[in-house]
Nucleic acid binder design. Structure first.
Lengths: 211, 211
DNA sequence: TGTACATCAGTGAACGCGCGTTCACTGATGTAC
DNA sequence: TGTACATCAGTGAACGCGCGTTCACTGATGTAC
């Protein structure tokens, strides 16, 4: 049953979106081609006509998720230039932590990428590089000699790691999970504004810990 | 074929060790009970006699991996008190990054934990709490008012996230991977020593970037 | 514009395979006497 | 210390099921004339 070129392109996109969402929710190994295709309203044969293999679909779904994430960040701040605080409030919120299917593909799959092929690894690397550049651009460290790129890499790692860990403990220790989100955001915020004043003495926003 | 109590305990440990290694290498969903049991030199029936389910074995393997990781850290510094630098050099090294099976269970499985049951989530939470306390104990921030726990959480998140990400890009962009390890270590080292001197102006140890 | 037909996106049955788990059974261990 | 036997760790066949992928086929699309 041949379909129009537009319909074919639409079907391809449906597959990519369904794959992205399901992979973020259940992991690359945790979701099968049958379910992805069913959610896209197609049979599995369509997947092989479009992508040739599950691996290729995974790589494209990862790329699409990253691209959409960037677009979402850009949209959220059309009126003014977004700040590091904006990113932190958005990325490290409890709402976002609990929305596995809608979130950042890197936080959702970080530890699974090392076991995938080079195609997936490459898309992941491009996504991380893009995040680092975005973070680097909003750092307000005063001295131009400061290595903003290094700081942006560490901040990105802390954000991705923090979100993944907060998700991991959410089921058993919800308030510890909230403490992790708040602590990472707080320390990163400070790191992004690193200046001549001492960090010492700061004690704002400490989340309560009651487990 | 009943075996001695010691033999049974030894077999149990073999299963836990094999499960831990294989899970770190290939992911929780990426390894089956048949392979775990084969590596332990047993049949899959033995697994169910000992643990009742794969999930219970996964939780115990996670716990064992974390306990062994802590013991290893303690052993590495019998002569003197380990410093944050010791941990960073150990945790964020390329050698360690490339040893998937032997490394930290949290970095190996961070993003998979959110999809597991409460038993696994709880073990993961305890492991992270333990890491945070270990890091907090070696922070040398001078002012006692500084919230060391918050910093320790952010540092732990950056270490785990950084290692997972460095592993993810290693296959496609090896020098970017090395840059990530070095950058996280560098920024975290500085953060652990946060004092009244400005961060600005620092520019040591920047790894070359050639992709 | 109308007709003929090659293209190819998508269908659905089938492939071999490994998954996690169950279960009747085995037979050495370790206890009770 | 010697004997009888209940225990139970481990075996191996079997369970239903879903996995990723292949492949002969369909039939509307879109092109060539």
């Amino acid at each position: 049953v041949k379909v129009t070129r537009e319909q074919a392109a639409e079907n391809r996109q449906k597959l990519v979106r369904a794959a992205g969402r399901l992979i973020r929710e259940r992991g690359i190994d945790g979701v099968g081609v049958a379910e992805i295709c069913a959610q896209a309203g197609l049979t599995h044969g369509a997947l092989y006509a479009q992508f040739g293999s599950k691996d290729a679909l995974v790589a494209e779904a990862l790329e699409d998720g990253l691209r959409r994430g960037e677009a979402r960040v850009a949209d959220n701040a059309t009126r003014r230039t977004p700040t590091l605080d904006d990113y932190l409030a958005y990325y490290l919120s409890e709402k976002r932590r609990d929305d596995l299917g809608g979130g950042c593909p890197m936080a959702a799959s970080a530890s699974e990428i090392a076991r995938q092929g080079e195609m997936v690894s490459a898309r992941f690397g491009e996504g991380f590089e893009s995040m680092v550049e975005t973070i680097e651009a909003v750092l307000t460290v005063p001295n131009p000699q400061t290595d903003k790129r290094q700081i942006a890499i560490a901040i990105s790692a802390a954000m991705i790691g923090g979100l993944a860990i907060a998700r991991g403990v959410a089921k058993s220790q919800p308030s510890f999970s909230a403490e992790i989100l708040a602590s990472v955001a707080d320390v990163v915020r400070d790191l992004g504004k690193a200046n001549n004043r001492s960090r010492a003495g700061r004690k704002k926003d400490k989340p309560a810990r009651r487990e």
